[in-house]
Design a protein around this nucleic acid. Structure first.
Length: 561
RNA sequence: CGGGGUGUAGCGCAGUCUGGUUUAGCGCGCAGCGUUCGGGACGCUGAGGUCGGAGGUUCGAAUCCUCUCACCCCGACCA
């Protein structure tokens, strides 16, 4: 491709609205153009990369026997109503009406649609298992799109669905998808971790998130550098902390007028906030419970939910707290509380604590756990912090930011029950089909690659994903000698099937080098005054290493591995 | 949805507080001509704007007032 005939609108300065590195570079290097908030066009060079990502994804999906299909974006409300997600999705789903007034949703995901395809057509165990995938545009009306295409309202996703007769088979498929995901992210050259995750609106029994580490990421994860343990913020298991021990004190009521926050109380009593105890009142399904944690911690609701085994867990409302404990908000404490009490295990054996007095404007100092109150259960119910001890080894957890690239779910029968997907086994008995679903944010991958592969000059594409293999820079297209040589190199490379972008523009060398570095094509072939067929300059974008090769060596040097 | 911020040429900005000297400027980019040609060259000439939109105040509005729309960031929420 000759650059004079190509559409590559590069920018010298960062666009004002972008502040993550990948967003800036995608706009500056002419990969994308914003149409509206969270909605982007892929320009030619951006689309090349997107297609390269797609082909890696497709190859790995095909390799594990998943069949590609394509489902519609516009989907009738009736299907969503079957599973209840027409309501559950709320404002996150874009909705439209047809001319007759029938309601449709722009699909944010496709469980309902694939189930509708499969049900009725698969009635026998003999037709199972099945696995399908598609690469398709998804719509989600995000409350806050951000960071360019990292969180868009319209984005490209690979979603896959598998159907099984048995749990064991579903788990085997889960493993196959899991391994395929690892291969995909390895081939893209990502540095990533895999964490156990929550299933959210998709539902199901368990799931894993594939998270690329990046400071621009929106997810917080914890990694143990020693044993490799990794988990998301609200699930990371923490070992026992080695807190400064305190000696026993005498319980004493103190008057703390209007002081409800840990900070205020600690300041007022001149106490270390770690000696304070927070007592949070939650409503677990229909029962009120008290969660007791250190003043310096935050409660991990998902952990507490798991400990309680309840379906719904919500912080109790102000009036409900008064009703359940007889105490206004901010003065609840563990002593004499008549609710089920779960305490974080870092409270076990702690002494000389400050707790709420279960009385207006009152706290109690000098309290010891075990002596003055005994929770029903000790458990890990706090959110992890940087440098917390690892539960699996003696290491320390490190807090990192990441971008979620993939998510695998073992769904079980959530959708097959709602949509009546049944099959007959060998004995003619009816069962619900067991499902799995597996997603990858394809467009998000493109941004994430840039996050992990760039320098101050611009993008550095991994060779497997680059929009072109090489950029051929003719330093002076008005010089016949240089142009003849450049033309010859260009036609030789093209003939060999090497994708080359030929910078034949009449521009200053500085601009050409700057653009080449910005768009990040792995190899730069530079044709300047000293160049001959026997002495062609080849520069690697990533390292900026220069070497001089003969024309017939060039192909071998830059062909894809 | 709560908090903060921004809308002036393709991009980045000044001008707004204190209305009039602006025919609305500057840099980059763009077009033409010439000189350059190994790290975002230089000179000359030129094109490009209903100052986000609507209404209002005023002799006069980019500037003041009211409403509104769009976009960005933090949070909440979510893949």
């Amino acid at each position: 491709m000759k650059l004079t005939e190509y559409f590559l609108p590069t920018l010298i300065s960062d666009p004002k609205e972008a502040d993550t590195i990948s967003h800036k570079l995608m706009q500056r290097a002419g990969l994308i153009d914003k149409t509206s908030s969270g909605i982007y066009s892929f320009l030619p060079i951006g689309l090349s990369v997107l297609r390269n990502v797609e082909s890696i994804v497709k190859e790995e999906m095909n390799r594990i026997g998943a069949m590609e299909l394509l489902m519609p974006t516009l989907t009738p409300s009736s299907l969503w109503k079957e599973t209840g997600r027409w309501t559950e999705y709320g404002d996150d789903m874009f909705r439209v009406k047809d001319r007759k007034g029938s309601e449709f949703g722009l699909s944010p995901t496709h469980e309902e649609i694939i189930c509708d395809i499969v049900r009725g057509r698969v009635r026998s165990y003999k037709k199972l298992p099945l696995a399908f995938y598609q690469i398709q545009t998804k719509f989600r009306d995000e409350p806050r799109p951000r960071a360019g295409i990292i969180r868009g309202r319209e984005f490209l996703m690979k979603d896959a669905y598998s159907f099984h007769a048995t749990e064991e088979d579903a788990e085997r498929a889960y493993k196959r998808f899991f391994d395929a995901y690892c291969r995909i992210f390895d081939r893209c050259g990502f540095s990533y971790i895999i964490v156990e995750a929550e299933t959210g609106l998709i539902g199901g029994s368990f799931s894993h998130e594939f998270i690329a580490l990046s400071d621009s990421g929106e997810d917080t994860v914890f990694v143990c550098p020693k044993c490799g343990y990794s988990a998301s913020l609200d699930r990371a298991e923490i070992g026992i902390r080695d807190l400064e021990p305190a000696s026993d004190g005498e319980p004493k009521e103190v008057y703390t007028p209007g002081l409800t926050s840990v900070q205020d109380v600690a300041k007022f009593l001149k106490a270390d906030p770690v000696q304070l105890i927070k007592t949070l009142i939650y409503k677990a399904d229909s029962e009120f419970v008290a969660a007791v944690i250190l003043g310096t911690d935050e409660l991990a609701e998902k952990k507490l939910k798991k400990v309680l085994g309840c379906k719904e867990l919500k912080l109790a409302k102000k009036e409900a707290i008064v009703e359940a404990t007889g105490t206004p908000v901010g003065f609840s404490g563990p002593i004499g509380l008549k609710l089920k009490m779960i305490a974080d295990n870092s409270i076990k054996g702690r002494k000389n604590l400050v707790v709420g007095g279960n009385k207006m404007d009152t706290h109690i100092t000098g309290v010891s756990s075990g002596r003055d109150f005994e929770p029903d259960l000790f458990a890990d119910i706090k959110i992890a912090k940087n440098n917390d001890p690892c539960k699996k080894c003696e290491g320390r957890l490190e807090e990192k930011r990441g971008i979620e690239l993939g998510h695998t779910f073992k769904l079980g029968t959530k959708y097959s029950q709602a949509m009546n997907l049944v099959f007959l086994d060998e004995e003619g008995k009816e069962h619900f089909i067991i499902m799995g679903c597996y997603g990858i944010g394809v467009s998000r991958i493109v941004a994430t690659i840039i996050e992990q592969n760039c320098d101050e000059r611009g993008i550095i594409w991994p060779k497997a994903l680059a929009p072109f293999d090489a950029i051929l820079i003719n330093i002076n297209p008005e010089d016949f000698g240089l142009t003849n040589l450049s033309d010859e190199i260009y036609s030789v490379l093209e003939k060999e099937g090497i994708k080359v972008l030929y910078d034949d523009r009449i521009e200053s060398p500085g601009k050409k080098f700057a653009d080449a570095d910005l768009i990040g094509i792995p190899w730069q072939i530079i044709v300047g005054k000293k160049a001959t067929k026997e002495n062609i300059e080849l520069c690697e974008r990533k390292t900026k290493n220069k070497e001089f090769v003969k024309l017939d060596e060039l192909i071998g040097r830059i062909s894809r591995e």
